[in-house]
Simulated scan of single mutants.
Amino acid sequence: MTLLVIGALVFAGCTPTTEPTSSPTASVSQPSATPTPTATSAVLVPDGTAADNLPLFTEVMNAVAATDASVQGRAYIDALVTAGFPKDAMEVTQDLTTVGNAADSIQFSVRWAGECLVGQVGPSVAVPTALVLPLTPTGTCLVGQTRAIDW
């Protein structure tokens, strides 16, 4: 469902629009070849739920995913901290496999109000994905080995 919504939003954002004019020749605006930066519309809701903060988490994730650092876990953590999420509530998986190859995907998360904001990006992920998920029974958001956030 989330992927369908994201796909619909991406498709809608790329659709040319027709501007109404009073002249007999209507002009059609074409999408630009390079995306234009937009102001942040989502805000951190400190007393809100994970669902309340999912829009900002998603916006930050998408902004980083559109850069050259798109498969670097630290870039997501740093951007989420800049957006106001607490670093001590975050987890991130390794950028590299055990043999030194780039990971097919990375995951990162923020524990928030008893739930988890979880993002996943990488070459094996069709589009960056962000979800609200429950905490694991051990109180973490990600399953398996994560890397230390020690910077």
Rank of each mutant, 00 (worst) to 15 (best):
G84C: 13
L142G: 03
T38L: 04
A26D: 08
A103C: 09
A148F: 04
T58R: 12
P16Q: 05
N62H: 07
L135G: 07
T129W: 07
P24W: 02
G119S: 10
A42D: 04
V64R: 01
A89T: 08
C141G: 09
I77Q: 13
G13E: 09
S29W: 00
L131R: 11
A148V: 05
Q72C: 08
D88Y: 13
D88Q: 15
L44H: 01
Y76L: 09
A83S: 14
G119M: 11
T17L: 11
G13V: 06
P134H: 07
N53H: 02
P31K: 00
Q107S: 14
Q120T: 15
T67R: 00
T17I: 10
P20Y: 02
T18N: 08
N101E: 15
Y76A: 07
F108Y: 14
Q30I: 04
Q94A: 15
P24G: 03
L56E: 08
T67V: 05
D47N: 06
T146S: 05
V143D: 08
M90I: 10
L133P: 08
D150A: 09
T136D: 09
L44W: 02
Q30S: 02
G84P: 14
L80E: 12
S23H: 03
V43A: 04
G100R: 04
V143W: 01
S23C: 04
T140H: 06
A12Q: 11
S27E: 07
P31R: 00
T97L: 13
T58K: 12
